[in-house]
Computed example of a mutant assay.
Amino acid sequence: MAVYFSEEASVEAVTARVGTNVDPRLAQVMACLVKHLHAFAKECQLSQAEWETGIAFLTRAGQMCSEERQEFILLSDTLGFSMLVDAINNRRPAGATENTVLGPFHVSGAPIRQMGDNITLDGKGESCLYEGRVLDLDGNPIEAARIDVWSDNPDGFYDVQQPDVQPKWNNRGIFSTGPDGAYRFIGIKPVSYPIPNDGPVGQMLGHLGRHPYRPAHMHFIVTAAGYQKVMTHTFVGGDPYLDSDAVFGVKETLIAPFERVSNGSTLWRSPFDFVLTRS
Rank of each mutant, 00 (worst) to 15 (best):
Ser108Glu: 15
Asp122Gln: 01
Leu84Gln: 15
Lys124Gly: 01
Val101Gly: 09
Ile119Gln: 09
Gln114Glu: 15
Ala110Asn: 14
Ser127Val: 02
Gly103Glu: 09
Gly95Cys: 00
Pro93Ser: 00
Arg92Ser: 06
Pro104Val: 08
Asp86Val: 08
Gln114Pro: 00
Asn89Glu: 09
Asp122His: 07
Gly125Cys: 07
Gln114Ile: 10
Gly95Arg: 02
Ile88Glu: 10
Asn89Met: 13
Val85Pro: 01
Gly123Lys: 10
Met83Glu: 15
Pro111Gly: 07
Ile88Tyr: 12
Pro111Trp: 05
Gly95Lys: 04
Ala87Pro: 07
Ser127Asn: 05
His106Trp: 14
Ser108Gln: 14
Asn99Ile: 00
Pro104Leu: 06
Leu121Ala: 08
Ala110Trp: 08
Ile88His: 05
Lys124Met: 03
Pro93His: 02
Gly103Tyr: 06
Ala96Gly: 01
Ala96Trp: 03
Gly95Asn: 09
Asp86Pro: 01
Gly109Asn: 06
Lys124Ala: 03
Ser108Phe: 10
Leu102Glu: 15
Gly125Arg: 08
Val107Met: 14
Val101Gln: 08
Asn90Cys: 02
Pro93Leu: 01
Gly109Arg: 03
Arg91Trp: 11
Met83His: 07
Ile112Thr: 13
Pro104Trp: 06
Leu129Phe: 05
Ile112Asn: 11
Asn90Val: 00
Asn89Gly: 15
Arg92Pro: 03
Ile112Met: 12
Glu98Gln: 04
Cys128Thr: 02
Thr120Ser: 14
Ile119Tyr: 11
Ala110Leu: 12
Ile112Leu: 14
Gly116Asn: 09
Leu129Tyr: 10
Cys128Ile: 00
Gly123Phe: 05
Cys128Met: 05
Gly116Ser: 08
Ile112Cys: 07
Asn90Gly: 00
Leu121Glu: 07
Ser127Thr: 12
Met115Thr: 05
Thr97Glu: 06
Lys124Val: 02
Glu126Phe: 02
Leu121Gln: 08
Lys124Ser: 04
Glu126Cys: 02
Thr97Tyr: 07
Gly123Ala: 02
Gly116Thr: 04
Gly103Pro: 04
Glu98His: 03
Gly109Glu: 02
Val107Gly: 08
Val101Asn: 15
Pro93Cys: 02
Leu129Arg: 12
Gly95Glu: 06
Leu84Met: 15
Ile119His: 06
Gly125Glu: 09
Leu121Trp: 10
Ser108Cys: 09
Arg91Asp: 14
Asp117Pro: 01
Ala96Pro: 04
Arg91Glu: 15
Thr120Lys: 03
Ala94Arg: 08
Asp117Glu: 12
Leu129Asp: 10
Val107Leu: 12
Phe105Arg: 10
Tyr130Trp: 07
Ala94Phe: 07
Glu98Cys: 02
Thr100Asn: 15
Ala87Cys: 05
Ile88Trp: 11
Leu102Val: 11
Gly109Phe: 05
Asn99Thr: 04
Ile119Met: 11
Gly103Ile: 02
Tyr130Lys: 05
Thr100Tyr: 14
